[in-house]
């Protein structure tokens, strides 16, 4: 038996936002790391085309941010929170403390320091963090990207061109963090046992009742039942891909330690085997994720 987990708009928002976001990372990171990711320019036919594509995907992300942001806020005002456990737009002290307590209890259970796993509603603490953190980071990227795109429209840049480079450092820094975020997010939600090779719930909008009863116990009683067939995943390959992701994240976590402050040129990294490996594997993984997202989205529509 299946339960309706995500609406059509939620699935579409995830798809458009994630594909445009990943494409922005693929086309943007080579600017920050030209020595290590210069080959990406070659894939797209040179740096000029790559930068044009970066702007095209930025437009798609801005559209998705404005459209889905407005849609979800209006939907919440008009229809209420439905089966979601996020109260008062997630802004009340009560809800925040509930999320923090859930996180602590969940981690304690994972580490074997607590007997019972806390019961969660539709969104557990890590999903709530994703839902709030990602739009904030995307907003920072949109604002800083806009300033770099139209520097002459901003007085603080025209009166002091040096501040342009502050904006660029913030834009690049958040982009690098987003690379870590995407790899961690996919590693946790798609490459884990029971989800591997892809957790289809965000693409099909459905989750099996059996899975929901373990992961979102409090939500099951208010969830809507829908037709569909459960597909069980039991491949041991998830451990291989999980290990690759964790190795990649460790290598990427090393990159900031190799960064040098080069004043107006920003944070630079010289030729380093670990950095080249970390960034190269990270970008290749993003390319695979973009392709996988498109295939899963099409499959999700058909299911």
């Amino acid at each position: 038996m299946m339960l309706k987990r995500f609406s059509w708009h939620q699935r579409l928002a995830h798809f458009v936002g994630s594909v445009s976001g990943m494409m922005l990372l693929i086309t943007g990171l080579p600017i920050m790391f030209p020595e290590h990711l210069g080959w990406v320019f070659g894939i797209f036919g040179g740096s000029t085309v790559t930068m044009f594509l970066h702007r095209v995907f930025a437009v798609i992300l801005i559209f998705s941010f404005a459209y889905f942001g407005t849609y979800f806020v209006l939907e919440r005002i008009v229809r209420g929170r439905g089966d979601s456990n996020i109260k008062n737009f997630g802004l009340s002290a009560e809800f925040i403390s509930e999320v923090v307590a859930g996180a602590v209890r969940d981690i304690l259970w994972t580490l074997g320091l607590r007997r019972e796993r806390p019961k969660f509603g539709k969104y557990d603490w890590i999903m709530v963090s994703d839902i709030y953190l990602l739009p904030v980071l995307a907003f920072i990227e949109i604002i800083t990207g806009t300033i770099m795109w139209f520097p002459r429209s901003f007085d603080f840049v025209t009166s002091n061109p040096g501040l342009f480079f502050v904006v660029r450092t913030i834009h690049a820094g958040v982009a690098f963090f987003l690379l870590l975020f995407v790899l961690a997010h996919a590693g946790i939600l798609h490459l884990t046992p029971g989800n591997f090779p892809i957790n289809m719930s965000i693409f099909s909008g459905k989750i099996s009742r059996r899975k929901a009863e373990v992961e979102h116990e409090k939500w099951v009683e208010v969830a809507e039942e829908v037709e569909g067939e459960e597909k069980k995943s039991s491949s041991k390959l998830c451990y291989v891909f999980g290990a690759i992701t964790i190795v990649n994240l460790i290598a990427l976590a090393y990159v900031p330690f190799a960064m040098r402050n080069e004043w107006l040129a920003g944070l630079r990294v010289s030729g380093d085997g670990i950095v080249t490996f970390a960034l190269g594997l990270g970008v290749v993984t993003l390319i695979v994720y973009v392709i996988a997202s498109v295939i899963a989205f099409v499959k999700g529509i058909k299911s």
């Binding site: 884990t192 046992p193 964790i246 990427l252 900031p256 944070l267």
Partner: peptide, 27 residues
């Protein structure tokens, strides 16, 4: 930004390992 990225990198690695293990236990 460099210091924030250094902290964030370590944090993301630790969180991913913990969460991966959590899903292993859940499964």
């Amino acid at each position: 930004v460099k210091v924030l990225l250094e902290i964030a990198g370590i944090f993301v690695v630790i969180l991913t390992v913990i969460e991966y293990y959590k899903y292993y236990k859940i499964h």
